[in-house]
């Protein structure tokens, strides 16, 4: 399983962590912030998933009924996971999460239908990868349905590489921290952030 997953040798980044503010392609002011653990943000996120179009589900998530949504959120909003939320005022427009999986983390991202195709997904993933790198995450993987070319294209643009295309779902990986293999190749532009 995770032990034989292939990750790129080269570190991609750096990415800017949250908070990130930008104007989306529909002229909405969007702010991406790390989930603060409050009931208020939890409830707004639960509302976002209540409204989520079932056609945009991926491999069974988000679940479609409220009880299962809350069970799932309880699992991925716990202390070990990293979560960022894109806010349009008080409305949760999108959410991306990193869930620990051994020495790597699994990534997923969801953008509410009304906010899709506005550039929010790109910013969300970049902010999450920045947050992950700041928090010591080095390797990230995800799965995506192979027919979902817009998503595959987005992940590639950010720097993900296809690591397994033999299953139903395509698996993609990225390295955002840790030493490159070998000693010669610091091709990154900055100091590598080996920090605190």
């Amino acid at each position: 399983m995770s032990s034989n997953r292939r990750f790129p040798d080269t570190v991609t980044g750096p990415f800017d962590g949250p908070p990130v503010r930008f104007t989306d392609r529909a002229e909405r002011e969007i702010e991406i912030r790390a989930y603060d653990g409050s009931d208020r943000e939890y409830e707004r996120l639960a509302s976002m998933y209540d409204e989520f179009d079932p056609a945009d589900r991926a491999q069974g998530i988000p679940p479609s009924d409220e009880r299962r949504i809350r069970e799932w959120l309880d699992n991925i909003l716990n202390g070990d996971c990293l979560n960022v939320i894109a806010w349009d005022g008080d409305t949760a427009a999108g959410h991306a999460t990193l869930v620990p999986d051994g020495d790597a983390s699994e990534l997923a991202i969801f953008v509410l239908q009304a906010y899709q195709e506005a550039g929010i997904g790109t910013h969300l993933i970049q902010a999450l990868l920045g947050y992950g790198a700041e928090s010591g995450v080095e390797k990230v993987w995800l799965t995506v349905e192979r027919w979902n070319q817009p998503a595959v294209g987005l992940y590639k643009k950010i720097g993900f590489e296809i690591s397994d295309s033999e299953s139903f779902e395509m698996e993609m990986t990225i390295r955002i921290g840790g030493d490159d293999d070998g000693d010669g190749g610091d091709d990154g532009g900055d100091d590598g952030g080996d920090g605190d």
Binding site: G60, I61, D101, E106, S167
Partner: peptide
């Protein structure tokens, strides 16, 4: 199986 995220994954046998 399900991934840490909760995504359903088919095993190669099931596939």
């Amino acid at each position: 199986t399900t991934s840490p995220m909760g995504k359903i994954q088919l095993t190669s046998t099931a596939e």
